[in-house]
Design a binder for these strands. Structure first.
Lengths: 159, 159
DNA sequence: CTGAAAGTTCAGTAAGTACTGAACTTACAC
DNA sequence: GTGTAAGTTCAGTACTTACTGAACTTTCAG
């Protein structure tokens, strides 16, 4: 009988909670990702994951789809072995991170609708929204140089 | 009888949904914030908000507490008038935005627990986590210069 | 081919949270 | 001071989403 609160499980549970609040994916997806971060070997089958985390294989199935779609996880096939294995996809998290940063300024479209509503009224009334919009405009402009520096830094690490 | 889908309400509802998914506050808090972004005059009492948005005054009360705590909204008092009024607090959103960026790298602590678990094992196994940690380390280092540029840009707008 | 394991789908339930309404406390205009 | 409106609290309900289990389809080792 396996303990439920060994360091591995503690890490997995914490990561699940983190994942839930930062990525808006279900906790269970985060547990799986957390497990794939620390398991040995680094690839596991759906069955192994279900058994290890004590979750339904249907949950594993749908979470795997989710993690594959978001390109955080990839499949590995092993010759002569029937099940497919899953492992963390290199660079996947970084790509998602950047995608999220880029997505942040999507709110500007909504804000312009707000400005539209105040058209013709006292310009002072528009300042509330313009301040907010200015922030996202600024941030939008920051992204390209951030990603450029990130690419450079990645290369340096490889060398 | 007031229409439910005039442009104001559409904006408020959209903003509520946006708020919910990006700030992790309840949708109703976003509706209130959205209303305070477009209302005229820009300050409203709890009662006015409750009536306008057709929500319980208890909800307004607790959401106001939330919005005040996060410093997105501030109170205004008007002499000879009993109710307190609320309005968008200048700079509040930007401060929250920065706080969130700064908070992002909190995950590094968790990641170091993960590395701990792989101590003594094949160094290759650690790469999954180190890559992730490297991303947050990079981003952490970016924040100061981003906030510096944001401060500069804010000053320029005032001039 | 074929049986058995791998993998998917989906209806139903559990769990968590947002929101309300009613009962209450507080504050101030008179 | 006092009555009334402002404002708070909280138990309960409604709503949403996560997760499961069972029934199903697919895949492949033998």
């Amino acid at each position: 009988m396996e303990k439920k609160s060994d360091p591995e499980n503690t890490f997995i549970e914490k990561f699940g909670l983190y994942f839930e609040s930062y990525t808006l994916y279900p906790r269970i997806a985060g547990r799986i990702f957390g497990y794939l971060l620390i398991c040995n070997p680094p690839h596991k089958s759906a069955k192994q994951i279900a058994v290890q985390l004590r979750i339904a294989k249907s949950s594993v199935s749908s979470m795997m789809r989710l993690l594959m779609q978001s390109r955080l996880v990839e499949q590995v096939s092993i010759p002569g072995e029937r099940p497919r294995y899953y492992r963390i996809r290199e660079g996947g998290w970084g790509e998602m991170f950047l995608r999220r940063l880029q997505g942040l300024s999507a709110v500007r479209e909504l804000l312009s609708e707000g400005l539209e509503l105040l058209k013709g009224k006292d310009p002072m009334l528009r300042e509330r929204i313009e301040e907010l919009d200015g922030l996202y405009e600024f941030f939008e402009n920051e992204i390209p140089s951030i990603s450029r520096r990130w690419e450079i830094r990645k290369k340096k690490v490889i060398e």
